[in-house]
Design a protein around this nucleic acid. Structure first.
Lengths: 157, 157
DNA sequence: ATGATCTCCGATCAATAAGGTCGGACTAAG
DNA sequence: CTTAGTCCGACCTTATTGATCGGAGATCAT
């Protein structure tokens, strides 16, 4: 349950790789293309391309066309949150269907629903978790994750 | 993204309702059948039945057959965690595909995968969150219109 | 300047899982 | 024993995800 899609997985791998190349010690500032990532991680080429297109459309990376072209991070690694990446691919975070109801829309169970409020608190906790974790935290070192539990007890790491 | 299925939603509603009836003030200990829940929350009857069957198979509720039959909570509300409910319906928690790899199974990206470890930490945080929240925390009735009672607040343990 | 090549881009198709439905089996009351 | 009401298991339909194909734009070499 709560599994993220393959595409989101690929997006995380790709961004991690791009960041590693771009800010790494070997060839800093180098542009990295789709084929390189696909071969490195055994990802279907055309599918990865589609993922990167989406990321570019959401201004997480910049695309440079033509030979010697490829992708570049649009921002610094610590300014790109995991939440932004996942939401770019899979749409806004929503544990329940009624999470983002506009005015006038109701689910059929809304009137007597007792589980909406607690579930929204769970959702907020997960949102905080994903928003407080950046691409930088995925680079090399061990990240520090903090989560605010709705049961008013902090859970660490 | 990270949306739980309708069936899981229905499971939560049903269990909340059963708990409310069973430990409520009106008719404590009463057995509640599928039809009652389906009508109360506008859930497709046959689908809800399937959900309740699964919950019974996982020993979260007890099924009593025949006329005047129905379902009963197998344990106290505070001993049933949200994680147990969701996992009964949707299977074990797994953010990534490689979360529960047995020995010998590897995803194609495993060798160079830099995102596995951080993602597993995210997964652990969510697991703790869901394990620390019980069905009891969903009781206390904060539906759509009612005012929150300071004593009967939904999300404290 | 121009051709050729490499890249990104949008639309299309197949596989999988979810959502929903049907009829049968069992139990207990009358 | 009959009958009504319940749970139970297998089946079908629809939606989402995963994967694919051909075309458009841009850059470099000639």
């Amino acid at each position: 349950m709560l599994k993220i899609s393959k595409k989101a997985d690929y997006a995380l791998m790709a961004l991690q790789h791009i960041a590693a190349v771009q800010f790494g010690d070997v060839t800093p500032g180098r542009v990295v293309n789709t084929k390189e990532i696909a071969e490195e991680y055994n990802i279907p080429l055309e599918l990865l391309a589609k993922v990167l297109q989406t990321l570019a459309k959401n201004a997480l990376i910049e695309s440079h066309n033509g030979p010697k072209g490829g992708y570049l991070l649009a921002r610094r690694a610590h300014q790109i949150t995991i939440a932004q990446i996942l939401e770019s691919i899979e749409g806004p975070l929503g544990i329940t269907d009624c999470s983002h109801e506009k005015d006038g829309e109701f689910c059929m169970q809304r009137e007597n629903c007792h589980i909406r409020t607690p579930l929204l608190k769970v959702q907020d906790s997960i949102a905080q978790l994903l928003n407080n974790m950046t691409l930088q935290d995925m680079m090399g070192g061990t990240p520090l994750i903090t989560i605010q539990s709705p049961t008013a007890q902090g859970v660490e790491r």
